[in-house]
Design a protein around this nucleic acid. Structure first.
Length: 268
DNA sequence: ACACTGACCTGCGAGC
DNA sequence: TGCTCGCAGGTCAGTG
């Protein structure tokens, strides 16, 4: 399931592959994933050229000539560059014909992903009240301190809260908390100043390493774009059996409706 | 205002 | 073998 590092990898790969390509036709096979009126969506994108490729949290922003195409992959959304004669299947939901004869195809087995168009100057930074990017200096120990004031939610829930910080999903939330030695179920009201510093530092460290590795592949993130990452081999707790640090059996507990993995010895 | 739950979807694997 | 059921999880609407 793509999180910030995977989405960043997809954005940079697509930038490399389709920058400067013009959309000649849009085929929408499943209209449920288009948040605009589907006809208007297709009509406004025809004749537009991919100019800039941006990311905000887990959202992709394609800046065209006159419109911004915003895409969220949710769990299983993937983009492919393929030729028209290559076979499609029932999970291909949107197909863009490009001016070089190839197609940009969006495939999503669970139909959770969403696309929409907005005006060209649509503000990426203020989008959806998303929290700061983890690498932005606004994401600081002082910011965490202020945000958690008056809140009692588990740390795991806090890290997954996109209003708190943008881009962290279930896998990296587990990894960040493991690196900090904090249990995912610990209330965010019960951490120290030092913990706040560690969360900022480990979040950046882990996401940076993941981006460098080209994103994580666990079960859903593979692509013909050549961006299959290998970061999952570096997971210390998520979907692991044994703690890499102490050998203790990894525990799994549902927190905020998500499976959360932690080492009961290393994480307090 | 905060916190929690269910809905959206489909594929897969466990269990009977 | 073939069926049912639970689980996977990002986001948002609805509820307490």
């Amino acid at each position: 399931m793509p999180e910030l590092p995977e989405v960043e990898t997809v954005v940079r790969t697509l930038e490399h592959l389709i920058s400067g390509r013009r959309i000649e036709h849009v085929e929408i096979r499943w209209a449920g994933m288009i948040e605009n009126d589907p006809q208007e969506f297709a009509q406004r994108l025809c004749g537009q050229t991919f100019r800039k490729f941006e990311r905000r949290g887990k959202y992709i922003f394609f800046r065209m000539d006159d419109v911004t195409l915003i895409s969220h992959l949710r769990m299983e959304g993937k983009y492919y560059i393929q030729k028209p004669e290559e076979p499609t299947d029932r999970h291909m939901h949107v197909i863009f014909d490009l001016d070089d004869g190839t197609q940009l195809r969006y495939r999503d087995t669970r139909k959770f992903g969403r696309m929409r168009i907005e005006d060209i100057d649509y503000d990426r930074i203020c989008f959806h009240d998303l929290g700061p990017e983890p690498f932005d200096e606004a994401f600081s120990p002082a910011y965490i301190h202020a945000y958690r004031k008056g809140r009692t939610m588990p740390l795991k829930t806090l890290l997954l809260d996109q209003h708190f910080v943008a881009g962290i999903g279930n896998i990296y939330a587990d990894e960040i908390l493991a690196a900090c030695g904090l249990r995912p179920g610990r209330s965010c009201a019960r951490i120290t100043r030092k913990d706040e510093e560690n969360i900022v530092q480990e979040t950046r460290q882990i996401l940076k390493a993941a981006i460098a590795a080209g994103g994580t592949t666990i079960r859903s993130y593979t692509s013909q774009l050549g961006v299959t990452g290998m970061f999952q081999t570096e997971c210390t707790v998520h979907e692991q059996k044994i703690c890499a640090r102490c050998g203790q059996e990894i525990h799994m507990k549902r927190i905020g409706g998500r499976s959360s993995y932690y080492c009961p010895r290393c994480q307090k």
